[in-house]
Design a protein around this nucleic acid. Sequence first.
DNA 1: AAATAAAAAGACAAAAAACTCTTTTATTAT
DNA 2: ATAATAAAAGAGTTTTTTGTCTTTTTATTT
Lengths: 145, 145
Amino acid sequence: MGIFSKTCEYGIRAVFFIAHRTADGARVSIKEIAANIDSPEPFLAKILQDLSRKGIIGSVKGPNGGFFLDPRSRKMPLARIVEAIDGEGVFTGCGLGLEYCSETNPCPLHHQFKKVRNQLTKMMENTTIGQFNEELHLGIKSLKK
Amino acid sequence: MGIFSKTCEYGIRAVFFIAHRTADGARVSIKEIAANIDSPEPFLAKILQDLSRKGIIGSVKGPNGGFFLDPRSRKMPLARIVEAIDGEGVFTGCGLGLEYCSETNPCPLHHQFKKVRNQLTKMMENTTIGQFNEELHLGIKSLKK
DNA sequence: AAATAAAAAGACAAAAAACTCTTTTATTAT
DNA sequence: ATAATAAAAGAGTTTTTTGTCTTTTTATTT
């Protein structure tokens, strides 16, 4: 497994795809999202339900319904998705899984690990959800396996 | 969950403790290791068996037996433990879990993510197993929760 | 050689993550 | 109003991770 959970990987890819696909104000169905990011459809549905409940993505039921992103969400950093799905542990937790570990009471690896963690945080805070629309639109990058 | 699996966290903590505790050539039993790193003893046994099979730590059965680290292993980078337990995916895998993603065919997040991954790799390659002996010996740092 | 101490191995058990299926609810178009 | 469409919700199942227990093997000490 990578740094993020599988659920989170699907979530990020889905949100990237929704951002790309609904830039013109359209909505996109789970079916289409799932097909375009290579994810199991019913499982993805759960993830998107959750992100919708948490206000990160929008959803409308019925014909012509589907998922979408409002302009505010497009400017949202990637970190918000990760926090919503995996929790903030990736950005704050100890590398050795120690509860006591903190700046004032660090574990042996704390200072080394902190640097990496902080860089990850900075990267995820500075990358926005809508940032890759053009590359995706031009077909340069893909979200499929 | 953090960047590494629980298994891996236990593994790193255990190896740090073995390094610290057997610096004088002694051996240390699972019981003692488990007590000092707050880990379930039988589960830790499995992890150490694996690390022993892979030649990262040494083990001797019978009275006065136990686990130990030879001088070569003390100079080994932390990355070897992580690779042995979690695989090298943490150091090489795509942030979005995409198989195709590589330097020549990057995913949208590839270049941003690569920097973080490379810093993690560098950190884990430059940190050695035996590096924290003194701090641990002085009781400044702990491996318990 | 016998007793003992400690790891190795194997077979289980529980919990969490990943994934599926079915039913319900809301919206829109006709 | 009704039919069609698409998400929401709920109730599973499977797989992986995490953790336990028992027996076997090996080395050491006496």
